[in-house]
Design a protein around this nucleic acid. Structure first.
Lengths: 307, 307
DNA sequence: CACACTTACGATATTCGTAAGGATT
DNA sequence: AATCCTTACGAATATCGTAAGTGTG
């Protein structure tokens, strides 16, 4: 017995009309095809559901029993398929994104609002997380994908570079280096700077970029905002990627490009290899592919204007 | 989109095993047929449900959504079909029978117990009713069928005679006619008898059977038991069909066959013409066809022994 | 005899199994 | 190399529509 949505619909239509011809039209079938459909349904179930002659179509006792069943099952099935359709057409769903705080705050807001406008039914959850946490979240399926700075494309995970940013030296206007147009790693030797904790992605990138040399550390902080505060208060200088610059008030500070051995920080899309992302997540990803690099450009050009 | 029970079963099997080959076996299909089944399901729905390679089969995000649906819908559907099967196999159901009180009490008890033994899951409701009420109950579908004495086979209803009974004169042992072996309608002229109300089936039959003559009435009663009481108390005599005789204590009374112009009272099965009876009702009907006449014979022979 | 359901039958579409292909470990 | 999913393809099955048949009012 292989009960079919079509059989239930046909049955319901015949109950409603009590007329094969009209029920057949309602199902977009010829009367004959409809007749055999009902007849097959009856022989599948093993009992006549309709007592019919050429003038009257009525339910049998077993037809009444089946009607109760169909009255329950048919709406359930159609509701379920409609729910499924909502997901397929991206009217429903959930996207969980893990992103580095700087990426989140500097690049995502306008992309998020575009996404929410295009897919108002989709629940969007963005977790700001450290690079390592991003990787873990994706690996454990706690996030659909991540936007982070670097990741090993291993057995499970795959990365794709969507954009890059570069590094800037940030200092007070009266700093000795304040009026330089461009700086090298060597220029910064001897100037104490605020660095981020070892685990932070900025710090790891910088450590790799200037290896084997080292800069002079003044403070070591955990959060970007702490570093911003220190520099703003004139207690230090720092080196941060482009995406961190909006956190600083550049009317009173200088941001000068720094040339490093690894000059670009990649902004990576990190995904699972099994391509099990939801359609909703895929929609967000294609929006990112389309707009993330442009967002970086926009940011850079705004900074050039400000500087 | 024509969702199928088979599709849901296949999906559930694949979720459970996460292996096409084993799921295919579970569905009694070749692995290849199973693969195209899943593939067709996916293209019907419009999205991949499984992220699969040769080593791993996993649900996609949309597959999870569909799993929630199937987890709900599949048990519902199977429960419904099992319910239907119970009715088809007569493990469930309801039979409503209308029957004349004499038929009910004299013939049905042993048939009822046989039916309840054979079909323990079926609810059996027997309404004792007058002949006219029997007809109405069947016509209005309040009863599946009726056992009554006579009925016009009209446009809606059809009758079938299952058995007959005959009429007896019942009197005290010291009545003048008490030792006769056989009586004619004429023999009863001048002997006052207890009659039943005009509407009763016994009365109507007797009126028709002796027309245009009439018997002398002593009392007119509504219920058989009243008549029984009167005769037993020696306050009258009466004429009743075979099926009513068990109500009398024949150790102290005489029951003598009466030859009438319409000598036999039919015991009819009254049904609707549209043959919309439930399978349960059909089962009861075939039991009646098989055993009702035998029950009358049994009753008659017991009476002959007693008399 | 007109209307409505059923049956017959050839055409089309779907589903099946066998067998070969491709990918991953 | 072994395992597992996919694809190709011919065969079996199911479903469709046209058209003729049947029965009822």
């Amino acid at each position: 017995m292989n009960l079919t949505l079509r059989q239930m619909k046909a049955f319901a239509a015949l109950v409603a009309t009590r007329n094969f011809t009209r029920a057949a039209e309602h199902c977009s079938l010829t009367q004959s095809a409809f007749s055999t459909l009902i007849s097959n349904l009856e022989s599948d179930i093993g009992v006549r559901l309709f007592a019919r002659n050429t003038r009257n179509v009525e339910l049998t006792a077993e037809g009444e029993v089946f009607l109760n069943i169909v009255n329950h099952l048919l709406p359930e099935t159609e509701r379920a398929l409609s729910e499924m359709r909502d997901h397929v057409q991206r009217r429903k769903g959930r996207v969980v994104v893990a992103a580095l705080p700087t990426i989140f705050s500097a690049l995502l807001p306008s992309i998020i609002s575009a996404f929410l406008r295009d897919y108002p039914g989709i629940e969007l959850i963005i977790e700001d997380a450290s690079n390592g946490t991003c990787v873990d979240l994706v690996r454990n399926r706690r996030a659909d994908f991540a936007l982070c700075a670097y990741a090993a494309s291993g057995a499970e995970l795959t990365t794709e570079t969507l954009a890059w940013d570069t590094f800037y030296f940030v200092c007070q206007k009266d700093h000795p280096l304040a009026n330089r147009k461009r700086l090298s790693a060597d220029d910064l030797q001897g100037h104490p700077i605020v660095v981020f904790e070892k685990a932070s992605s900025i710090r790891q990138h910088l450590d790799a970029a200037i290896y084997p040399k080292q800069w002079l550390h003044s403070f070591q902080v955990h959060n970007l905002s702490t570093g911003v505060g220190l520099v703003t208060a004139g207690l230090g200088t720092t080196v941060v990627p482009t995406l961190a610059l909006p956190q600083f008030d550049l009317r009173n500070l200088r941001a000068i490009p720094v040339a490093l051995s690894i000059n670009r920080r990649e902004i990576c899309l990190l995904r699972r290899k099994d391509s099990s992302e939801s359609l909703a997540a895929q929609a967000f990803i294609s929006l990112l592919r389309e707009r993330l690099a442009k967002e970086v450009e926009l940011l850079t050009s705004r900074l050039a204007t400000a500087g």
